[in-house]
């Protein structure tokens, strides 16, 4: 099977010790110089998915960008980001494909931008794994939304970084395509440390080992929710529907609180 694409570095065994988590402490999100959050403390278990939920405008995307090392220094963030620079791949809500490059060339973009040789074998393997082998030579405008997101996934995987940051990666897709893409991402990103911002509690419950809720003004993080079972979970399995309802209720409550 070509479904699983192993990362270059084998993931650390899961243990409560320091090397098994990426610790971020004292991170203050800022917007236009004004603090948007309290000092945030965040620990990402290595090789697991962490989802961040929260009302819109609370700073979820800012958090992700800060961790990706984006945003002008001193403006967006204070504090340590766990030395993540150079170890992360970033995938946004919009696929970010360059419209003049073919699917394959978009996948090879990172290496070309760094002036490194492109690993053609790995590229072919990844294109095959996401089911885009036949479309490798097409430009993005010839693809459907789901295919474009698959192509973006290939570009992200080609980076072969231990940490993957995703900002609502599947939110623009129709529900069926979204389920497909979630499964595909869970399979292909297995072994990597993933932080995913989403506004969809079901997506968080399906894919994440841990769920964080960012809320309030200034924003803070609650203690993580750890759903039972191993992702990707079926949307109907066990008490997932009940948890989904509870989580929605919670978010609704927080949104109402924030609007007051």
């Amino acid at each position: 099977m070509l479904d699983r694409v192993p990362p270059a570095d084998p993931p650390h065994p899961e243990s409560p010790g320091d090397p098994a988590t990426i610790e971020v402490a004292g991170l203050i999100l800022k917007a236009g110089g004004a603090p948007l959050s309290r000092p945030l403390r965040l620990s990402l278990p290595v090789g697991q998915w962490t989802a961040v939920l929260g009302p819109s405008g609370v700073g979820k995307s800012t958090l992700l960008k800060a961790l990706a090392g984006l945003g002008p220094d001193g403006d967006l963030t204070d504090g340590r980001t766990g030395g993540l620079a150079g170890r992360v791949a970033y995938m946004a809500q919009s696929d970010g494909l360059l419209p003049w490059l073919s699917v394959a060339d978009n996948g090879a973009l990172g290496a070309r931008l760094r002036g490194q040789p492109v690993d053609r074998v790995r590229l072919a393997t990844l294109l095959q794994a996401v089911g885009l082998k036949a479309q490798a030579g097409l430009r993005p405008d010839a693809l459907s939304g789901g295919m474009r997101q698959r192509a973006a996934l290939v570009r992200t995987l080609m980076e072969d970084r231990p940490v993957v940051l995703m900002d609502e990666p599947f939110s623009a897709l129709d529900p069926v395509t979204r389920l497909d893409l979630q499964d595909l991402a869970a399979r292909t990103l297995a072994g990597r440390t993933v932080l995913m911002v989403t506004h969809d509690p079901m997506e968080a419950l399906r894919l994440a080992h841990r769920i964080l809720i960012l809320h309030g003004r200034p924003a803070r993080l609650d203690t993580p929710i750890i759903p039972p079972g191993v992702p990707p979970r079926s949307p109907t399995a066990g008490d997932l529907p009940a948890r989904h309802a509870a989580l929605l209720e919670r978010l609704h409550h927080l949104a109402a609180e924030g609007g007051r």
């Binding site: 960008k65 990706a68 090392g69 984006l70 150079g86 992360v88 791949a89 970033y90 946004a92 970010g96 973009l109 990172g110 931008l113 760094r114 002036g115 980076e159």
Partner: peptide
Amino acid sequence: DQARVMQAR
């Protein structure tokens, strides 16, 4: 942004 995360020249 993507290029920056990719540590592009």
